[in-house]
Each structure stands twice: as structure tokens, then as C-alpha cells.
Simulated scan of single mutants.
Amino acid sequence: MAEVTNELIYEVLKAMQTRLGNVEDGLREVRGELKGVRGNQQAQQVQMSAVQTDIGNLYEAFGTLDSRLARIERRLDIIDTPVR
């Protein structure tokens, strides 16, 4: 069996410290990527909400225009009778 010396222990601890530093760097990188993914998801949710609001506004505007057009047709007496 090999003799365990302080120098051998020191070398093993130095290697472990280097590897631990690499793990910490990798973890920092993964955390940064995760923050980016979360930020992207939040941005997409905000965009989707804005699109839904815009669609709702369009439906409301079309409804208003449809009502106004129906009123104009009644006043001008140009309402088409439905075909049966």
C-alpha cells in the first residue's frame, strides 16, 4: 500500500479544489441560462396577453361598427331581407 503523505493529500485537495471550481462555474452558467428561459417565458406570456387584449378590442370595435351599420341601413331603409 502506498504511503500517505502530506504532499499527496495536498495534491489531491488541490485537484478537488480545481474540480469544485469547474462545477461552480458550470452551475453559474446553468443558472444564467435558466434565468434567460424564465425571462423569455414571461415575455411570451406578456405578449400573449397583449394579443388576447388586442383581439378583444377588435371584437368590440367590429361589434360597434356592425351596430352602427345596422342603424344606418334601417334609417336609409336599405335592409336586405333574408333569403329563405
Rank of each mutant, 00 (worst) to 15 (best):
M1T: 06
M1K: 04
M1N: 10
E3N: 08
V4I: 15
T5D: 04
N6L: 15
N6Y: 13
L8K: 15
I9C: 09
I9R: 15
Y10I: 11
Y10T: 15
E11F: 10
L13N: 13
L13Q: 13
K14M: 14
A15P: 01
A15K: 15
A15W: 12
M16T: 15
Q17W: 06
R19C: 09
R19Q: 14
L20M: 10
L20P: 01
L20Y: 02
G21L: 12
G21I: 04
G21Q: 09
V23Q: 06
V23C: 06
V23S: 08
V23N: 02
V23K: 07
E24T: 10
E24R: 15
L27P: 00
L27Y: 05
R28C: 03
E29Q: 13
V30M: 05
G32T: 01
G32A: 03
E33I: 07
E33S: 05
K35H: 08
V37Y: 09
R38A: 10
N40L: 10
N40P: 01
N40V: 04
N40C: 02
Q41G: 02
Q41R: 11
Q42R: 14
Q42A: 12
Q42E: 12
A43E: 08
Q44D: 04
V46K: 07
V46N: 07
Q47C: 00
S49H: 09
V51W: 02
D54I: 00
D54S: 02
I55V: 13
I55T: 06
G56Y: 01
N57F: 01
F62A: 10
F62E: 08
F62H: 10
F62G: 01
F62Q: 09
G63R: 07
L65P: 01
D66F: 07
D66M: 03
D66C: 00
D66S: 12
S67G: 11
R68L: 14
R68G: 04
R68E: 14
L69I: 13
A70G: 01
R71T: 11
R71Q: 14
R71N: 08
I72T: 04
I72N: 07
E73Y: 02
E73M: 05
E73L: 04
E73G: 03
R74V: 08
R75F: 06
D77C: 06
D77A: 14
D77Y: 00
D77Q: 14
I78C: 08
P82D: 05
P82Q: 02
P82S: 00
V83P: 07
V83S: 03
R84M: 09
R84T: 06
